[in-house]
Design a binder for these strands. Structure first.
Length: 444
RNA sequence: GUGGUAGUAGCUCAGUUGGUUAGAGCACCGGAUUGUGGUUCCGGGGGUCGCCGGUUCAAGUCCGGUUUACCACCCCA
């Protein structure tokens, strides 16, 4: 006998209930994106390894599901959707209407040790706006991000979008005399400050900044204390650097749009967010639970240089991604998962005679051909048993084809919620069922 | 890749100082119930106690290894 083979670590089966949950997430994400005027795209799950190493460097290979195919090609399952998107858009950028607003929901793979909120196979909701430089695009993207969360019933009490700005940081660090490479290293330290020992942080900073590390830490503490746009304005004004002051115009524009859309309550200025990756260039953000628990629910930002880096004509871009695993986790913890039982319209109960069964099967076929979902016991049993099955099926109506009804050319309907019943002639089957599905049957 | 904790039925778990044939609730299936579901009662299937080895007359229980999961690191596109 064959041994029982389990799913690979970090991979999941999706039996009906899990599949229903997954599709629920997809449905909401897709609806939010379409409501924002985004168009859906998709790409191959397997790509040339080079597509990913070009974007993220050779170190990324340790975290990829890569292998050599039978043709000797170095390939990898995709760890994210952005490189594929960049290729698709980059190759056709000249002929696409701007701004380009595209989204995708796709399975991605990373060869990492799994833990809470992180698996080796997961689904990402990825949305991007390309070909637009101004804060209007960032606002639009943030709107989609927030509204996609809200469509699950998550509100400002549950989550917060922490908004930051790589441009502001890079300008600030340049004013301190750091070159680009040193700045990026400093940012990656800032990115981790929240989670690691302060002494360790200081040690790291001294390596880059020398004696001014202490002063820098004080400055960073002041920056991270900023939580509103007005506080940010005050901090920038106090520094009195022209380049930073100029950047505030972009902040004001962005914040003005978010405020007008009613999204300001969901956002907080938080310069402690810098995103780990080197290629982010402007506004960046991450969504967390309001109480600060768990890993990021979504994250994104502007990456104006990436498309060019991948070998295409320069193209402004901003995007974000959210994952199915963390999303399902928060919805479950907040009790926001709806019951996802299959919504069956009718369950047919029929008598044991040939005539009853034939009448029932004719009705089943007619209703199904009109898109009404109908199920019935494949193996006829007692009426009591069949009603129990009707109950278990979750159907709204039980349709009854017993000896009495069929003999009279009739059928009966029972509203499974109220227990109310109604009868009608077989020739009125479709209208009768549609009417009762819409309005139910009151108990007499 | 490094540490910590855990693994008994589909799920949640009990299982005494090592001692006969490993239990409960929920879920599932059947019956009471051949014209009416949710309640109730009765019954049933389902376990190589994660896996391999060791100690012992005897291991779910003790020991070693391994694997998987969870948690914390690393990383987080």
């Amino acid at each position: 006998m064959a041994s029982k083979i389990q799913t690979l670590p970090g991979f999941r089966d999706f039996p009906p209930q899990a599949c229903a949950l997954r599709n629920y997430l997809f449905r909401k994400w897709r609806a939010a994106a379409i409501a924002h005027g985004f168009q859906e795209y998709d790409g191959p799950v397997l790509e040339s390894l080079e597509l990913f190493t070009e974007k993220s460097g050779p170190e990324i290979v340790s975290q990829l599901f890569n292998f050599t195919d039978k043709g000797g090609r170095e390939v990898s399952l995709r760890p994210e959707l952005t490189p594929t998107l960049a290729r698709m858009v980059g190759a056709n950028a000249g002929s696409l209407k701007r701004p380009i607003k595209w989204f995708s929901i796709g399975e991605c793979f990373r060869f990492e040790k799994q833990q809470k909120g992180r698996k080796r196979s997961f689904y990402q909701f990825n949305a991007d706006i390309m070909g637009e430089e101004g804060p209007g695009a960032d606002a639009e993207l943030i709107s989609l991000c927030i509204q996609s969360m809200r469509s699950f019933g998550l509100e400002a009490e549950h989550f917060v979008l922490r908004l930051s700005d790589r441009t502001l940081w890079m300008t600030f660090l340049a004013e301190l005399g750091l070159d680009e490479e040193a700045s990026i290293r400093a940012l990656s330290i800032v990115d981790k400050m929240e989670r690691v020992d302060p002494d360790y942080t200081k040690q790291q900073l001294v390596a880059i900044l020398g004696d001014s590390a202490g002063k820098f830490l004080d400055e960073v503490a002041a920056m991270r204390a900023v939580t509103t746009i007005d506080e940010l304005d005050a901090w920038v004004s106090a520094l009195g650097r022209d380049a930073l002051v100029a950047r505030m115009a972009q902040w004001r524009e962005l914040w003005g749009i978010l405020d007008a859309m009613g999204l300001a309550d969901f956002c907080r200025v938080d310069l402690g967010i810098v995103r780990g990756l080197a290629y982010y260039t402007g506004f960046v953000f991450e969504v967390f639970e309001r109480n600060g628990e768990g890993r990021a629910l979504a994250g994104g930002g502007r990456y104006d240089k990436l498309v060019e880096k991948l070998g295409y004509a320069p193209l402004h871009a901003t995007g974000f991604a959210a994952g199915d695993v963390t999303m399902a986790d928060i919805l479950e913890s907040k009790g926001l998962l709806p019951s996802l039982l299959p919504a069956l319209d009718c369950y047919v109960v029929y008598g044991s005679g040939e005539a009853e069964r034939a009448a029932a099967m004719r009705a089943v076929a007619t209703l199904r051909s009109l898109g009404i979902s109908v199920d019935y016991p494949v193996k006829p049993t007692g009426f009591g048993k069949m009603f129990k099955q009707a109950d278990n099926s979750g159907a709204r109506l039980a349709l009854i084809f017993g000896g009495e009804e069929v003999a009279e050319g009739k059928f009966k309907m029972r509203d499974m919620a109220t227990g109310g019943e109604a009868a009608g002639p077989l020739c009125d089957l479709v209208d009768g069922v549609k009417m009762r599905l819409a309005h139910g049957i009151e108990k007499a």
